[in-house]
């Protein structure tokens, strides 16, 4: 993983980064059981609460274009057992999703897949014998015990590529970064691009008041139903205030956007 300060010096030497993109899925990172502070004092993501999670595993990286196209090549869009009932209804209308060109956007295969909706992300994770992470799993894996604005602490990472893209509004030529190379400072578990790069789908339905209604919780899974699923982590097109540990963004499950991708979670083996 390339980090702040090393990126330019190492870029030309990194044989891993120069190699043809692999369609191998992301390595998994083990997250031990534990408690953390979820939420923020900011009203839209309030209140802070204590959440306890059982141990699980999560992808170190966002799902790459190459990894997702391996799912497509394996017939992922043609295997009903990987799709939920509403997912199958969506699939009937969109048998190939938004298409490979939309997912790729002209980027190399080691960049994050985009333009995939919640149903596709959910099916991909099932194919990998996992699931989308819950909001709580995502936040704990990204930000550890909580109580911080970003995975690395409270400081804006002003020289991280994900930051100035959104800030200055001149985005021509600005794009995602490879999933396994993150120029932002590392979070506690070493996951890449939990904030920035692309938004990530989570398993939960969105409700503004769900933390307040549930209170402190063990392995919370969010509301039983809703209109919107929760996106986490912001994207390279956002201001940093959208790419925080706590920011929760509601999105229709069928949203196809050029800034939305995902990673998967897995039960502890």
């Amino acid at each position: 993983m390339l980090r702040v300060g090393l990126g330019p010096a190492l870029a030309g030497l990194s044989l891993v980064a120069m190699a043809a993109p692999s369609d191998a899925p992301s390595p998994k990172v083990a997250v031990p059981a534990g408690s953390f502070q979820q939420g923020s004092a900011t009203e839209a993501d309030a209140p802070l609460r204590t959440v306890t999670l059982s141990a699980f595993q999560i992808d170190r990286d966002e799902v790459s274009i190459a990894a997702f196209e391996a799912f497509v090549a394996a017939g992922g869009y043609s295997r009903p057992e990987l799709w939920t009932e509403p997912g199958r209804a969506w699939l009937a209308e969109h048998p190939q999703g938004a298409g490979a060109n939309m997912r790729t956007q002209g980027r190399p295969g080691d960049h994050p897949v985009v333009a995939v909706g919640w149903f596709e992300a959910d099916a991909y994770c099932r194919w990998r014998q996992g699931s989308l992470p819950t909001e709580a799993q995502w936040e704990h894996a990204a930000c550890g015990e909580g109580g911080r604005r970003y995975p690395w602490g409270d400081q804006d990472a002003v020289d991280a590529a994900w930051f100035d893209a959104g800030k200055f509004g001149h985005l021509d030529g600005v794009s995602t970064q490879p999933v396994a190379e993150d120029t932002a400072p590392a979070g506690p578990l070493g996951l890449n691009h939990t904030v920035g790069n692309v938004w990530e789908w989570t398993a939960d339905w969105y409700n503004r008041d769900s933390y307040r209604q549930e209170g402190d919780a063990l392995d919370p899974v969010g509301p039983a139903n809703g209109l919107w699923r929760v996106l986490r982590g912001g994207s390279y097109m956002n201001l940093p205030s959208y790419a925080t540990c706590a920011h929760r963004e509601p999105a229709r499950p069928d949203r196809v956007a050029l800034t939305v991708g995902f990673r998967c979670a897995y039960p502890q083996p």
Partner: peptide, 27 residues
């Protein structure tokens, strides 16, 4: 709409939005 649906508040976690009174703190 916010009351009926539980949708996210108009709120941005930045000083310009807080200090200048743009943020909603309830629906």
């Amino acid at each position: 709409f916010l009351v009926a649906t539980g949708y996210r508040l108009p709120e941005v976690d930045e000083n310009w939005a807080r200090d200048d009174g743009w943020n909603w703190t309830s629906p």
